[in-house]
Amino acid sequence: MLTHYGPQLVNLFAAVLLLLAFAMLSQRRMLSLINLFAAQGFVLFLTTSLVAALTGQHHLYWSALLTLALKVILLPWILHRLIRKLNIKWDVETLINIPTTMLVGIVLVVLAFNLALPISQLAGTVTRSTLGIALASVLLSFLMMITRSKAIPQVIGFLAMENGLFFAATGAVYGMPMVVELGVALDVLVGALILGIFIFQIRERFDSLDTRHLERLKEL
């Protein structure tokens, strides 16, 4: 049963992941953005557990638990606290040109699929078709960081990019060695905490979280 539907289920989850990446790209509400990020983390947890069950790679269960703890519980909790403290829970960001951004996103997805094609053909994993999706969600998060002007969406874009990379590792090679995954998770956690502190300081100095204020250092 599992061996039959398993690979298809992985592909389904991968598609959901990509959909969530697009949803984040177009989401204007701060609170919903954080929830989308948590949802993406949860899908990642499901996928990793499923791949672990399909392939019998036990270390993937640990990675899945790490994902659940870090990206579904801890980081969203920190972000929720942050927006509550900064009192921007209901903030709506004015995004110009969502349709254009979406179109650029589609082009990026095509690009990612083309780039991943020669690699996934070589892969022997049951999840090989997901590599293109993983690269696409990395690029979409990248796009999100570029198009957003507020600090918190940029941070979420940064974290979502790490989600895509994690998914790439799971899909292409059944996860990196455990020591590396732990190191990456630690870096992401510390990075998120530092950015959280920074956001307070930026708000204190500039009275705003709009990073368009952070454009004074430039060439003359």
Partner: peptide, 18 residues
Amino acid sequence: RTPASLEAAWKYFILCGV
């Protein structure tokens, strides 16, 4: 903690993080 240094650090983090 000056505005300019915060700006530089933010830029540094985001660009190098990406």
